[in-house]
Amino acid sequence: MTTPPSRPGSAVHDARAARHSYSAEVLERLSADAEQILAKYPEARSALLPLLHLVQSEDGYVSPAGIAFCADVLDLSRASVSAVATFYSQYKRHPNGEYTVGVCTNTLCAVMGGDAIFDRLSDHLGVGHDETTDDGKITLERLECNAACDYAPVMMINWEFFDNQTPGSAVETVEKLLAGEPVKPTRGADSVATFKEVSRVLAGFDDGRADEGEAAGPATLVGLELARKNDWRAPAGRTEQAAEHEAGTEPVGDTGSSAERKPQAPADTSPSGPTAGDDSDAKGSGKEGSA
């Protein structure tokens, strides 16, 4: 990079931004939140990860004040809290942008275009991995696999999915962020919340947005659609069998029709019909395939 971007991790930046203590009001609010978090766990220390998310929701990173707060709440040393905070990649050591734009550059996404997307964004924004634009809007990151490989290449903005990206679509999206316009994930909430807002959700505070968005994207449904089209099903279970049995006990046919015919041959009483057929289709078919 020819022009070095502002490095939020630099001493100059830290001196300007680092927060070392909270006001009484903030402390009171955080303490009330912490109490709710602690109530979920049989042992207090289990609350540390959510508490670190909570202090990120206050400061936009894990500040010295945040470390001290967690240490005080859990009666741990600040060193113990720092040791945990530095282990996990979602905890930021310096002020994060309003939006973390992460591009998966693990193997599959990288090959499918993730490397090219990251390079294009890096050029476009003038920042590298874990660096933030001067206006504090965007922190760019290389991500490890985010469990959406069937939508490769994948970009995450504040941990919401942007599937099937191209360098062009990624640039378009970050342009909107820079312009202060809302952006919509391909699978997720109706719009991307800020880094601080999302951190508060991860601390365990529901933001009431679970019902936004779709149940599933197209790749999630591709196998199910194929099964529906071909009428492929799992073997019928007890519940369905019971329903079929019940249906079969209804009187059917007129007097003297085949419905009144008494069983005469073994075939008349052996199981047959779609249920058994489905069953035999599904089971053992793998073994046949191998032969």
Partner: peptide, 16 residues
């Protein structure tokens, strides 16, 4: 031929 057996995925195309 083996066919698909939607069990866990069976509900995924239902509304909400």
């Amino acid at each position: 031929m083996t066919t698909l057996t939607p069990v866990l995925s069976d509900l995924w195309d239902a509304p909400r």
